[in-house]
Structures are given as C-alpha cells and as structure tokens.
Design a protein around this nucleic acid. Structure first.
Lengths: 197, 197
DNA sequence: AGCAGGCATTGACGTGGGTTAAGTCTTTGC
DNA sequence: GCAAAGACTTAACCCACGTCAATGCCTGCT
C-alpha cells in the first residue's frame, strides 16, 4: 500500500504553519487525485470553481484569456497551489484555466477538505497564512509586470528559474512574460548578441 | 467631545465581518491619527513598516520607485486601507511610499492594535478576511495591468471612478496607468478625436 | 504686478512589441 | 518512413510609448 493522500498536504502545511494539527483520518476520505495528460485541463474558465489543487508531480500553468490569446499567470510545478481562490471564495465561475504542461498529478482539495482544515483548532490561522501565501505570490507578479520590462523579466527568470526555461515550451514562457512568441525570439537574440560584445 | 477614534475602524470591520466583536475600550488607547498636508508622506520606502493606515479624509496614493520614477499602485480615498502589508508581516523595510494627494487624515493601526484585533475571539477570521480583501485588490490590479492596454485601463477608470479623474493630478493618473504623462495626454487626444467620428 | 515653478500639452525622433507571412526544424501519428 | 502538425525563428511593416525639448497655462509668492 502506498502513502496516504494526505501526506503531501501535510508537508505543504508543515512548511507554512508547523504548529497546525488536525485529525487527518477525517480528511483522508475526502481527498482525491487527478491525473492529467500533457495538455489536459484541470480547470476551465467559466467552470464553477470548488477546489484548489496541489501539484504532486509534473507541472501545470494557470492562464486566462485575453481576446483569443492565452495569458499565463503562474507556472505550478510540484508543490504549488493552483486554482482561482478568489472565485472559489465568492462562489463565482473561475476566470482562470489550469492546464498540464507535462503529464501531471494533482491533489484536489475540495470544499469539504477546506472546511475540515478551517474547522481545526488553528484553522483560521492556517487559512490566513495560505491566503497570505497566495497574496504574496500575486504581489510579486504584479510588481514584476508593473516595474520591469519584458527583457528584465526574462533575465530574472533565467536567473531564478533556469530549469523552467528548459521544461516549458517557449510560447508559454512568452505568454508568462507578457509577450508574443515572436517578440521573445527577438528579445533573446538581442540579449545574446549583446553578450558577445 | 468628538467621536472615538475606534469608530471608523468599527465601520470598516463591520463592512467585511459584521459578526466581529472586541473590547473596543482596550483598543482605543492605542489608536492615533496622523494629519498630512497635500504632498506629505505617511510612509517612506525603506522605513521599517509597523502599521497599516485607514484613510479618514482626503486621498493618498501608494507608490514605489522604478529607477528614478514613481509608479502609483493604488489610490486610497477615505475608507481605504493602505500600507505595505507584506513587509509589515515579514518585518522588512517598506518598499512602498504613501503620499497625501490632498490634505488628509489617516487612522494608524499599529502592531498593538493589530495584535488586539487578532487576539479577539474571531480575530483570525477577521485577519483572514482583511488579507483576502487586500489580495483581491492586488489581483484585480494585476489582471488589469496584464490583460488590458493603457487605453482600456483609462476608459475603465473613466467608467468606474470618474470622480478620481477630477480629484487627482494627471501625472499621478498616468503613473497609475503605467504611462508617462506625455503618453496619457496623447492617449486622451486619440480617444476624444475618435469620439468625434 | 511680476516672476518662478509646476503641470499639461504638443512635436520630433528612436525603439520595442504586435501582426502577418514565410521558412526551418522537430515532433507526432499513421 | 512519411506526411502532417506544431514550435521556433526571421523579416517587414505599423503603431504606441519613452525621451527630450519647447510652449503655454495656472498658481502661489514676493
């Protein structure tokens, strides 16, 4: 028998709030995983939005539509939370879609699981930390989009997440940087030509 | 005698979490207000960051520096929270500055006040809602910067906050939209010329 | 009144990104 | 192994924004 589904969730929580405790035997039966092929959708814009995912293996991306184009907001490799938290809370349809970039496995935290976590003694504190975690990620992304040029963002990505640039197709990287694929090509050429001098 | 300082705070909390209760007589002595002249700074980038503000009257803006230029992240008219929440929590220096656009008065929620609120029976739930409130504001700003063109952002502002466009000098509006003042001038001209046809 | 400083506008110019189209290369499926 | 589809690159053209500079308006100060 393999490890219980709650194990990765416990590890995630341990990292943000080690003091947290809950009766995991009550959580376990509500947990499930979803397996996705490369390109498969975990969540589709417009769907009712009643879970948060935790990537177990592989890598997903969270994106939304601008006109007919897809804009990638976050990459979610193993250990990342993904979903449309705001519309989960407000019980509105999701405005994000979640797609597997590689074959991936995701732990589903549905409303029952979230309710059990919240009902635990330190549940509200945990939820606050999780929301902070999400908010900080949003803030960093906002600052980088607001303050930096696409070139600065590319160089920063090269610096901080070089493995992502290997794993993820270029057109997703472009969309993450806020560019068209053609512009990323040119940008890279500029950068590398400048490196030669 | 005028109304207690806690009154506007109670109103703000009532709006997000009506069930909340706390012994306000213990909070009151830690509250203070700060009066700012037009142009005055409530918070300066690099300062240690140990309070959140609640605008009582007037209007402030939250901005940060990109190279030598100021980028305006939020406008904070009466009733708004302002401050660098992330760096308050992480006890790092602020990366935002807060400046009064008009003569303004701000209620200061220092660490003691926040601790008292958090220690109340439903304190953690309240803090969670406040963080969500801040996170949702960040998310909306992020989506608008990511998805919309400066022109779309200008038109949206015209639609949703027409009074702000009257109150706030153009170069702050430009900086909020992510533009130089010259570009906002031209953008407006484009829009109005197009309206004629 | 007169002057200075700040703010908004306009123009000229350069640049980077969007768009379209074409071409190369790799991957996928049969 | 071959054909089709998809991914990345390059090129040409256009346009919006940044920059620098000049002008004009308004406010406040002396």
């Amino acid at each position: 028998m393999s490890e219980p589904l709650s194990e990765p969730l416990r590890q995630f929580i341990d990292a943000v709030f080690p003091q947290f405790s809950v009766d995991w035997s009550r959580v376990e039966p509500h947990l499930e995983t979803r397996s996705l092929q490369k390109g498969g959708l975990l969540l589709r814009e417009g769907d009712p939005c009643d879970f948060v995912g935790l990537t177990l293996t592989g890598c997903l991306r969270l994106f939304f539509l601008k006109d007919d184009k897809e804009l990638t907001l976050f990459f979610c490799p193993a250990g990342s939370l993904l979903g449309d938290y705001q519309n989960l809370r407000q019980r509105r349809p999701a405005i994000f879609s979640g797609q597997a970039i590689e074959a991936s496995e995701v732990l589903i935290l549905n409303r029952q699981v979230l309710a059990l976590l919240e009902a635990a003694p330190a549940g509200p504190q945990l939820m606050r930390l999780v929301v902070e975690f999400l908010a900080f990620r949003l803030r960093d992304r906002l600052l980088s989009l607001y303050r930096d040029t696409p070139e600065q963002r590319y160089l920063a990505l090269l610096e901080t997440e070089p493995e992502l640039l290997q794993r993820v197709p270029q057109h997703y990287i472009a969309s993450y940087l806020g560019l068209e694929p053609e512009s990323l090509s040119r940008l890279k050429r500029r950068v590398y030509q400048r490196r030669l001098s």
